[in-house]
Amino acid sequence: MTLVKFNNGQRRNTAGPRFIDVFDSILNDQFVNRATVNKTPAVNILETETGFDIELAAPGLKKEDFKINLDKNLLTVAAEVKKDETAEAKNYSKKEFGYQNFSRSFTLPDSVDPNKIEAAYTDGILKLTVAKKEEAKLQAREIEVK
């Protein structure tokens, strides 16, 4: 494991090195990191000839935690995480793992087949496969020049 120092290990010594060390550790550990953490999972969307592949990065969850709904052309993926009572009883000196409820919605185009949506959860990635309608698939053909 390699530790990376920011600012190349140089500190601003205008107020004294101990003063900055104290406030850096307080601000970096408690306020700044938690305030800037995104609470929704990152998403990759890939369009292929036959449909769309939607991947959500949601590590630490179980497939039973997910709830996927389709209402007209709005696909909603939500996860409800049950709190672990034994984890709250432990006395952590630092706790950065945080599994929270989330909900993401995607507006599907008219070209998708609502009856052909599949979901699989493997290695922390929820993958949704949304098939296109047959008439929406790209038909490749050669056009003759006259």
Rank of each mutant, 00 (worst) to 15 (best):
A119Y: 01
L61T: 04
I45D: 08
D24I: 01
I117H: 05
V4P: 11
I20S: 00
L46H: 05
K133R: 03
L108I: 10
P59W: 02
F23I: 05
V32K: 03
I68F: 04
Y92D: 07
I143K: 00
K72D: 15
E80T: 15
T2S: 13
T2Y: 09
Q30M: 11
V81G: 05
I125L: 08
T14Q: 01
L126M: 02
K83C: 11
V22K: 04
T48S: 07
F31D: 04
F106T: 06
A131Y: 05
F66G: 09
P41L: 00
K127D: 04
L70M: 07
D29R: 06
E85F: 11
Q139D: 03
I117R: 03
G124T: 04
L108E: 09
N44H: 01
E85Y: 04
A58K: 02
N7G: 08
T36K: 00
K62R: 04
A119L: 03
D21I: 00
D113W: 11
A119C: 02
K116S: 14
P17E: 15
P59A: 12
K39W: 11
V4W: 10
E134S: 02
N38H: 02
Q139P: 00
K127P: 01
F23E: 03
M1Q: 14
T122R: 12
A15T: 01
E96P: 05
A79R: 00
K127R: 09
F19T: 12
R104H: 08
L70R: 02
F6A: 15
Q100I: 12
G60C: 08
L126H: 00
A58E: 09
R18Y: 03
E49T: 05
K94E: 15
K132C: 11
S103E: 15
P114I: 11
E85P: 10
A119H: 02
I45V: 13
P109K: 15
E49I: 06
F19W: 02
S103I: 14
L3E: 12
V43Q: 06
K94D: 13
T122G: 08
S111K: 12
Y121S: 08
M1E: 13
K82D: 13
K137I: 01
S93A: 13
L128A: 06
R18T: 11
A79D: 07
D21P: 00
F66E: 15
Q30W: 15
D21V: 00
S25N: 04
G9D: 05
K39D: 03
R12I: 05
T40D: 00
F52H: 07
I54M: 08
I117M: 11
T36C: 04
E55M: 12
N91S: 13
E135D: 13
N7Q: 08
T14H: 01
E134K: 07
D29I: 02
G124W: 03
K62A: 12
Y92C: 07
K132A: 08
K5L: 14
P17H: 09
M1H: 15
T86K: 10
N8T: 05
G16Y: 00
S25P: 02
F102K: 10
E134A: 12
N28A: 13
M1K: 15
E144C: 06
R141S: 12
N69H: 11
V77P: 06
I143A: 07
K62C: 10
A120K: 10
E47P: 00
N115R: 07
E47T: 04
